[in-house]
Design a protein around this nucleic acid. Structure first.
Length: 297
DNA sequence: CGATCCACCTGTCGGC
DNA sequence: TGCCGACAGGTGGATC
């Protein structure tokens, strides 16, 4: 599930428990996720204080007090949750906590805050497409998975002119160009579909066609840049999207899935006022694309 | 170099 | 019920 807004939601959920806290113990319950864990994974984390928690594209980066960076990617099905020891429950009072599936809890990080509050930060990932790696001190920006990432679609740096420049001479369809993490970093299948719908642009259109003749941004490039920024910002504000049983770190569901205009809405009427199109599903480079063939050109 | 495809996993859902 | 195939939020790495 996790695209940029979901990873940002996870970062915000973990931050109060991690920043300034000390790692007391790490349980690594299997040798690998998508990749093997680094040598001495648990040992190198144990005893460290956590300086800060950063997000870059869909990566979470935990900055430790010795300069080490823990790079965490959630893949398709990774999630974090927080657990704390419950208050003493009165005898005979049945505790109605939702039973949790702990089958795929692969890493448990035991932390203690400055106020001596103890928490467990648990990484769960059924499909194990996620991974955890180290960036050695000072080497984060030259890490092979980080160094080629493109511009963040948050803030206001991504405008029509920059987008036109990025897509200039690209023959790939817009859908593929928007998913290319070396151009724009953090968009995934859902938010690409949603941004293209907002911009009234077809996912099949050649990416280079939105760049102007002499690098002048076209109205299409301006619309797409605005749409990308708005859909990402709206999704972050809603706490991301919950698909399947994905939840935020506090167990709350994100709400943005209720705001999808086209994603996973095959056969429904196009929600654009005065458009009588039907949301259609096609497959592009092996993945579903949802769009309205009437209003998206 | 850039552009395309596949592999990596488990779980769920719909159809028969 | 049960079985089987299709599909799911991503992307590194192989291959052309």
């Amino acid at each position: 599930m996790p695209e940029l807004p979901e990873v940002e939601t996870v970062r915000r959920g973990l931050q109060p428990f991690m920043e300034g806290a000390t790692i007391a113990r790490v349980e690594q319950r299997r040798p690998d996720l998508r990749f093997p864990f680094p040598e001495n994974f648990a040992q190198r984390l144990t005893g460290r204080r956590i300086d800060s928690l950063e997000r870059r594209a869909k990566y979470l980066i935990v900055h430790l007090d010795d300069g080490l960076g823990l790079i965490s990617h959630l893949g398709m099905s990774g999630s974090y949750r927080i657990e704390q020891d419950e208050e003493e429950t009165a005898p005979g009072v049945f505790h109605h906590e939702r039973s949790r599936n702990t089958t795929h809890d692969h890493v448990v990080i035991h932390v203690e805050s400055k106020e001596r509050v103890k928490s467990r930060i648990i990484y769960n990932d059924p499909r194990r497409f996620g991974f955890m790696l180290f960036a050695e001190p000072g080497a984060l920006n030259t890490h092979k998975f980080i160094q080629d990432l493109g511009i963040e679609p948050t803030g206001n740096r991504l405008d029509g002119a920059l987008l036109a420049k990025l897509f200039e001479n690209k023959n790939a369809p817009l859908k593929a160009a928007l998913l290319d993490q070396t151009l724009i970093a953090g968009l995934g299948n859902i938010y690409v579909c949603e941004a293209l719908w907002r911009a009234e642009l077809s996912p099949l259109r050649v990416a280079g066609s939105i760049a102007g003749e002499n690098s002048e941004p076209t109205p299409m490039a301006e619309r797409l840049a605005t749409s990308i920024r708005s859909v990402i910002s709206d999704a972050i504000a809603a706490g991301g999207s919950s698909l399947k049983d994905y939840r935020q770190t506090d167990g709350e569901l994100g709400y943005f899935q209720h705001s999808f205009s086209v994603y996973d809405r095959e056969g429904e009427p196009c929600p654009r006022p005065a458009c009588d199109g039907t949301v259609t599903r096609i497959v592009q480079s092996g993945r579903s694309t949802f769009f309205c063939p009437i209003c998206q050109h």
